[in-house]
Design a protein around this nucleic acid. Sequence first.
DNA 1: TTGAAAGCGCTAACAC
DNA 2: GTGTTAGCGCTTTCAA
Lengths: 341, 341
Amino acid sequence: MEKQTVTIYDVAREAAVSMATVSRVVNGNPNVKPATRKKVLAVIERLDYRPNAVARGLASKRSTTVGVIIPDVTNIYFASLARGIDDIAMMYKYNIILTNSDDASEQEVNVLNTLMAKQVDGIIFMGNHVDDKLRAEFKRAKAPVVLAGTVDPAGDTPSVNSDYAAAVEEAVTNLINHGHKKIALALGSLSQSINTEYRLAGYKRALNKAKLPYDDALVYEAGYSYDAGKKLQPVIADSGATAVFVGDDEMAAGIINASMESGINVPNDLEVVTSNNTIVTQITRPAITSITQPLYDIGAVAMRMLTKLMNDKELDEKAVILPYGIVRRDSTKSDEGETVN
Amino acid sequence: MEKQTVTIYDVAREAAVSMATVSRVVNGNPNVKPATRKKVLAVIERLDYRPNAVARGLASKRSTTVGVIIPDVTNIYFASLARGIDDIAMMYKYNIILTNSDDASEQEVNVLNTLMAKQVDGIIFMGNHVDDKLRAEFKRAKAPVVLAGTVDPAGDTPSVNSDYAAAVEEAVTNLINHGHKKIALALGSLSQSINTEYRLAGYKRALNKAKLPYDDALVYEAGYSYDAGKKLQPVIADSGATAVFVGDDEMAAGIINASMESGINVPNDLEVVTSNNTIVTQITRPAITSITQPLYDIGAVAMRMLTKLMNDKELDEKAVILPYGIVRRDSTKSDEGETVN
DNA sequence: TTGAAAGCGCTAACAC
DNA sequence: GTGTTAGCGCTTTCAA
């Protein structure tokens, strides 16, 4: 009952050629006489032969598989990156081993090791934080690693991102230009470099340039979720802030809904700008002004870089920065002088 | 410069035992004297030996990898299933090769074949439609296949789903109980069995039981997206329908926003019920009444079934149906007699 | 409890 | 253009 497998050897025998020749035609090696190729192809067809990728991997030391570490597939931000990664991977005939890390350092190291054991040819890492331990593992890995949508300020690991700091700076500057003096910043965790080293930094730069004082009390660390946003809204309201930059769309939606329901009009009493331009920004009322990031492209470019690395090519750029934009919707007042990067 | 790999042979030599013994300790085979085990473990530690999963796979004919075919990772419905799949896979020490199929039949067959070439031990398939060609491939595959969140009316492929037809029937019956005579049904594609054989069927059953006439003109095939919903709204309005069951949350959001903006109050002028209970249902105003499905669990159970199959165990049930529910929000009027399955 | 040895199915020199 | 032959790194009988 067990379906029996036909091997390259069977094909060779039936076609009256050597295994090497079969291997050549299977791999598209041009050094095969057309007639021979045709004969072999016929036998392959007849026997329904399918090369065993595992054996091939062992012999060639290339698995044509890349590992992708993602915090959570159900997070649309990372899933969008993953989509870009997968499409390019497919284009280059690589498969993807995808594993959720839950952003947990221990789990990330773990996963990295099983990926290495599976002999992946390269790794794309997505996460909110790269710590020393992880960095050490990257170095230890003999497969190249590329970070996608993931910053490592310390790192020399190749990466693809957009300019988070500049985006926030521009968004906050727009808010300042609307006359706001107290602008809140609602983030997830302040232990993540994207928040502290980029978003918070951009926020501070904007204030600085406008000679507005920086106030710790206006920076909120609340976790990224719709409910977190709803809970945070009264706190923001109490702070006297008249505008807020939010690091996550669902959180922004929570803030908006809670505001509107407690009689605080967005954008008249509170302007809101968010970060990821997911579909949520279109669905809320008012719809949310947002930074836009080329998520799919970040993934796609990361995968392209990885293919280069896997073929021992040099990278033109080690830390690629893709352009961001800002799309104005109804959660902010109209303004002049908005620019799009 | 190339990092050199340490093999089982190196460990054997250093520990002065045979490869077989090393293999035993690595695989937790109890037939090893504790002292020997300890000695080997020490060498493994010292050399930082990591077993090569590819070689292991070739020798043992098990890759501890399962293939997962998904229409699109960025679709939260399927991503939620994938999350359940991955968690259970990890629990059983399997890795996941994840590939997007775009719901394209050709691509699905393609992907299936490369997964087989990679010698996956099993496959979980998610998709909106299972056609004959695919069914044939499933049969041809020597690895077991389980469908997750995917119906195959014809099929004998093991599957995990919720009772889509009953859910729609109940939801529509609730609507009927509110006095509606013309209830629209907004779906994606009518070429997908989940829509015709389940949702449409449930819809018809509800009408039938209430002795309400079925009217083709009230069934819309519009594609699943926010914009599709917005575009569909005026059409529904023109039809005279006073309630609508929608197959997708974003589409429902589009219908609701477009309605409210054109002066049609939800739920007073139009009641709306949707299908997937994603975060979108909480974000819209009014929030949307929805069927709830245990998406994570559907994935998790599918993966559990697959592990059984991969170990040649019998399945208790071939077509598992997990319970659905209905959560009432503000897009429908309150009603008595709602039940939760 | 341990070891020897034969593969697993394929690629990659190398020789012809 | 084609064939021969070592492996790739591991598991798995089978003996001892």
